Amino acid sequence: MSAKQVQSGQSKWYKTQLLLKNNTIHPFIPDTRKFTKHNLKQMIHSYGMIYVKPERGTYGNGVIRAERGERQGYAYQYEETLRQFDTFEAFHNSLAKKIGKRSYLVQKGIHLLKHNGRRFDIRVMVQLSPKGVWEATGIIGRLGHPRKIVTNYHSGGKPTAVEQLLSTHLSAQQLMHLKGELNRLGIRIAAQMQKTYPHHRQFGVDIGLDRTLKPWIIEVNMNPDPYIFNQLKDKSMYRRVMRYRRLGLTK
C-alpha cells in the first residue's frame, strides 16, 4: 500500500465517500459533512443531536457530542465536560476555538441503545479467509464509560458479549437474525473497501444501533485491535480472529 493510500485510509471523510458509492451500504451511513459554520447550523437544527469528530484520529480522541436544547439553547460535551450556550454564535465560536485549524466533520447523531444506562455500539471484525473470501470472524459489544460519549476501550469502554448487551432488547431469535445482518453488512463494507485497498486483509466495522434497532456505520477501522476479543470469557472468537490475522501477516 502506498503512503498516499495509508494517509487516505486514516481519513474518515475519504472512507465515507468510498462507502457512499455502494447503494446497498448507503442507507446505513449517517449524514456526514465537513465542519463549517453553515453545516453545523443546518445539521444541529435538522437532527437536534450531532457528533463533531476529527477527520483523522483514533480511540475516539477529540470526539464532541453536541445538542440543541428544547428551549433553543445549545450544548456540547467533550470527554466529561459539558458546556452550555444561549446562542448559536456563542456555541459555534466555542467549538471553532476548540477545533482550531484541525479538519473536523459533523455527523448526524445516533441515539445509541443503552445497557444499564450506558451507551454501547458493536464491532464486527471482517477478515479474508484462507480461501480469499471475506468472513465476519468476530462480533463484540463495546459498553461506554458512564460519563463518556465514546465507547472505545482506551476511553474506558468495556468489551462485552453482544448477547449480554442485547438480551433486554431482543429475543434469542431476533438476536441471531440481527447478528447475521450485521455480519453481512460488515462483509459488504470490506468488499467495497477492497476495491481501493486490494492488499488489505482485515477491517473493523463499528456499528451503532438506534432505538429502532436500525444499524448505522460509525466508522471503518483499517487496523482493528484483535485483542479486545480476548476480553470475552469464551475465547473461541479470539482464537479465530488471531488465526486469520496471523495468516494475513504471513502473506
Score class of each variant (00 low, 15 high):
171 S>Y: 04
170 L>A: 02
106 V>W: 08
32 T>G: 10
2 S>L: 15
245 R>V: 01
238 Y>A: 11
241 V>Q: 00
100 G>Q: 03
65 R>S: 07
58 T>S: 11
109 G>F: 03
91 F>D: 02
183 N>L: 04
141 G>D: 05
174 Q>S: 09
101 K>Q: 13
123 R>K: 06
93 N>D: 14
116 N>K: 13
14 Y>L: 02
88 F>G: 06
8 S>V: 07
140 I>Y: 01
162 V>M: 04
233 K>F: 02
24 T>Y: 10
175 L>D: 02
125 M>K: 01
13 W>P: 03
250 T>Y: 08
155 S>N: 13
174 Q>A: 09
248 G>Q: 07
104 Y>P: 01
25 I>L: 11
7 Q>P: 00
219 E>R: 06
179 K>T: 10
221 N>V: 08
97 K>L: 11
235 K>P: 05
60 G>Q: 01
249 L>Y: 12
164 Q>M: 13
20 L>M: 15
55 E>H: 06
107 Q>K: 05
14 Y>S: 10
95 L>C: 09
76 Y>I: 03
3 A>D: 10
2 S>C: 07
165 L>N: 00
172 A>V: 10
108 K>G: 04
186 G>Q: 03
125 M>D: 01
28 F>A: 06
61 N>R: 13
207 I>L: 11
10 Q>L: 15
133 V>D: 08
122 I>Q: 00
20 L>R: 15
217 I>V: 15
76 Y>P: 12
92 H>S: 12
76 Y>E: 05
223 N>L: 11
138 G>M: 03
228 I>R: 00
197 Y>A: 02
169 H>I: 08
46 S>P: 01
225 D>P: 01
87 T>E: 06
60 G>V: 07
192 Q>N: 14
54 P>Q: 09
235 K>C: 01
213 L>T: 14
35 F>N: 01
86 D>C: 06
1 M>Q: 11
125 M>A: 11
60 G>N: 03
245 R>H: 11
188 R>L: 14
56 R>V: 14
129 S>M: 11
94 S>L: 06
3 A>H: 10
63 V>W: 00
3 A>P: 12
250 T>K: 15
13 W>A: 07
75 A>I: 01
6 V>M: 15
219 E>F: 12
37 K>Q: 14
32 T>D: 02
54 P>D: 04
181 E>P: 00
196 T>F: 09
33 R>I: 07
76 Y>W: 08
164 Q>E: 15
244 Y>M: 13
169 H>M: 03
173 Q>K: 14
207 I>D: 00
94 S>G: 04
87 T>Q: 04
152 N>C: 06
117 G>A: 07
